[in-house]
Design a protein around this nucleic acid. Structure first.
Lengths: 241, 241
DNA sequence: GAAGCAAGTCATCGCCATTGACTATAAGGT
DNA sequence: ACCTTATAGTCAATGGCGATGACTTGCTTC
């Protein structure tokens, strides 16, 4: 049992060890290998050939488990999301802090997988992890003092802004270095050298201009939205009293 | 004039008419053809072969004008942007209205080219159209009453949120119909049938839940940001008086 | 009108996703 | 214990993609 069969597969210097065992492949294993490759080489490196090599299986074997590459990628995105922002959200007595924490949570998840960010943002998952987030955000907004209708629409705005911003910031990280450097430099150099006549505001404030990828933008956006909620609540309670 | 030379090229039923004239190709012509193809068939349809057919030239001729496909696509994006939100922004006496109009302007541009939206959002253009927008937004925020530092960072937040949200909404339109329908239905059906015990907030508010692609989200996000600016200005003027 | 070179062409490369035919193998009935 | 059968894994082939390098043609310049 150990000499013949095991030997064929594990010692394999370079030639393919005949054939894999019958049920030695599964959706889970393939997704795992896909994540390894995607994290290491980026989404472009995720090819059937690469998968085949990573799994020590024939590239087309994957077609027995996934209809096509799209199905594989979508499922991979789902599994990443499930693994990343699972359940550890817990409400405190500050709705503001709760929403802030959730935002940062999601933001970090997107930044962890820059290659997928663009495709992740627009898709609905319909899985427990997502339900939990929605419930959590709704609860916080109701505790803040918003009536049901406004809580739902505000939740949608808050969630979409968070995902969209995170996705964009993350997508920036996925650009190649030269491109990114050029874009960042543009804000530091080109904007400073614009004529004060044509662009008076830019000229007078160019010292404060930061690049498009400034990570502080996300935090400020979150705070501004939270401020808006607070103001709205104050207006509502004033009008009812 | 009409028989020999003209006949060869214009009547061309199917065979290639020998060879194109020496300077009959240019960056502009190629970009124009690329836009035609991309708008008609989507970004995936934009291949060198398709370009060759559209231009009635050999596919590889394009390499004499663009180093590679990436250069072509980036330039195409730039030219679309320049053509779309050109100069017609004009300041009124309401900074709020000005920023609102600008937001809608950019939003519409992104929705016009869903195929490009994802790649457009994260890139800096460094062209007059962009300078003009930045100048316009900065001016509006200063008129609103923000000090220079806050005006610049707020401008960045405002711009990024607008572009990111537009890009996401637009990217949604680029999804295939089945996927989009399934995602939209999830919010109407699946979220309504979640157990009230596990998800009390969702259960009690499910009537108000709208899909992730709700176009109203963009408008509300803009209003919330503008509200936050207004509140901030009020706080600042209160503390200085 | 000859020379020279840039612009257009062509054959070809290597990589990709996907398919249909095949083949070994594990499970299950007898 | 055997034989059958469905099926997971394999393989060769297809067609499309971006890209390259050698070539050839026709415009320009002297």
């Amino acid at each position: 049992m150990s000499t013949s069969q095991d030997g064929k597969r594990s010692t394999a210097k370079k030639p393919r060890p005949r054939r894999r065992a019958r049920h030695s492949l599964s959706r889970e294993m393939i997704l795992e290998a896909a994540e390894t490759i995607a994290v290491r080489d980026g989404l472009d490196g995720l090819t059937f050939q690469a998968l085949g090599k990573e799994l020590e299986a024939h590239p087309t074997s994957i077609y027995r488990h996934f209809r096509d590459k799209d199905e594989l990628v979508l499922e991979l995105i789902d599994s990443l999301r499930a693994g990343s922002y699972g359940g550890q959200l817990e409400a405190t007595d500050s709705w503001r802090e709760d929403l802030r924490v959730m935002a940062r949570h999601i933001h970090d998840h997107y930044l962890r997988y820059p290659q997928f960010a663009l495709q992740m943002a627009a898709r609905t998952t319909r899985r427990p992890a997502e339900f939990k987030n929605v419930e959590f955000a709704l609860d916080a907004l109701v505790r803040a003092g918003l009536p049901p209708e406004e809580a739902t629409s505000t939740m949608r705005v808050f969630g979409n802004v968070i995902r969209a911003l995170s996705s964009m910031e993350s997508g920036l990280h996925a650009l190649d270095d030269n491109t990114r450097r050029g874009d960042a430099l543009a804000w530091e150099v080109e904007y400073r050298s614009l004529s004060p006549e044509a662009y008076p505001r830019i000229a007078s404030m160019s010292d404060h201009l930061t690049s498009i990828g400034d990570p502080h933008v996300f935090d400020q956006a979150v705070e501004m939205l939270l401020d808006a909620v607070e103001t709205r609540v104050a207006v509502l309670s004033a009008s009812t009293s």
